[in-house]
Design a protein around this nucleic acid. Structure first.
Lengths: 212, 212
DNA sequence: TAAGAACTTGTACTCCGTTCAGTTTTAGGT
DNA sequence: ACCTAAAACTGAACGGAGTACAAGTTCTTA
């Protein structure tokens, strides 16, 4: 099992793992990032539907077949998480507060991950509104992580009532989703945190006792 | 604007509108239903991905082009609502309780529409689990109706705080979704109503004050 | 019943996603 | 340093989704 180690490789940017990573994996990650950033650039310029997978592959210096060996679909290149990001999400999940009641633990988790989420939002929201075809895959940007969350939840409350547990998770996701929708990327990130916090607090307190 | 009138046409089945409908619209509706039921039959037999649009069109005695003039995509043929059903949804929306607070009105609405929803669920859930490619379009079966719901909500609370209103709607949808997931179509419909009711009540009361 | 609107059809096209056989690149033991 | 096996890349070909369009057919209405 590889261990996180600082790296000063020529690929630059982030990437904390590496020394134990071997040329093979290092190249693979580099290729992944090249393809993805090329894709985001082209799509950002021309719009999602106006860029074909071939365009992306060509511009990234790679074959169409290779593109599909890295990304399961054209949409995936927009929504898939960088391995580094995945590590961060996993970390947050593992270091999660176990002393708090479920809802508060989820809130804490959400606030921890919100800044990370906020980084992806401006681009994704821009793409979403200009390319209706993407609506389906989106659902926040955290949706891709829902399976892992669900598994974590199962580990945390193995004996809990299934329906009720699912409800807690779904409601929390709905709250976060609402905050995502409401946040304008031009506003500061603090505003986003505020929205996430508000939505989770309101939902946690109950929506029945509300104005109107 | 057409008015609902009983009909004894040869197309059989439901269909309450008609006398004021003219041959043109009547044929169109008949074609819609033929295509859709053919599609559901084939897909039910062979699975979603194993049936091509051409198969459906051929079996329904219609051209591929015509199929796409009725349904925007292959997925749409599974999830689109029959015009009759749309009328029922609209009716329920218009006759909605205005004397209750928002959350209770939504709960009432959900319980009114739940039986109608339950009719669609067995087939859709079966298709969903056997065809992973469909997950995206699904989101309950009510998702297709969300825009209208949202508009209704806007009419009802024009002055309300945007975020909070959106949160109420999203949370209610999450609760219903949870009930949909939890319900096994082998169970009686009453059980589904119970689940919807429970989920909405729990979410309405607040999830923070929960076990674990 | 004739003009015109609405609906249907076949054809041709682009693009997504998959398969596969053949080549190049890397890892690791000798 | 070299050889082999595994892994990654590539081009070609294919099937299906979805769109565009021109030509044909069927209903409406005046």
């Amino acid at each position: 099992m590889p261990v996180a180690i600082k790296d000063g490789s020529a690929t630059g940017q982030h990437c904390a793992i590496s020394a134990v990573m071997g040329l093979r994996e290092r190249k693979k990650l580099a290729a992944w990032r090249t393809i993805r950033s090329t894709a985001l650039r082209l799509i950002g310029e021309r719009g999602f539907e106006a860029v074909s997978v071939e365009d992306i592959a060509a511009e990234a210096g790679v074959s169409r077949t290779t593109f599909f060996s890295y990304f399961a679909s054209k949409e995936a290149v927009v929504f898939d998480l960088d391995p580094d990001e995945v590590r961060q999400w996993r970390n947050a999940l593992e270091n999660c507060r176990t002393d708090l009641p479920l809802w508060d633990a989820l809130t804490d988790l959400a606030l921890t991950l919100a800044p990370l989420l906020a980084e992806r939002l401006p681009l994704q929201k821009r793409l979403l509104e200009q390319s209706p075809g993407l609506c389906r895959s989106a659902r926040g940007a955290c949706d891709g992580f829902e399976p892992e969350l669900r598994e974590w939840l199962g580990r945390r409350c193995p004996d809990a009532d299934d329906v009720r547990t699912a409800l807690v998770l779904n409601t929390a996701m709905a709250a976060i989703s609402t905050a995502v929708d409401a946040w304008d990327p031009d506003q500061p990130v603090e505003r986003f945190l505020e929205l996430v916090s508000d939505c989770l607090r309101w939902a946690g307190a109950g929506l029945a006792a509300a104005p109107s």
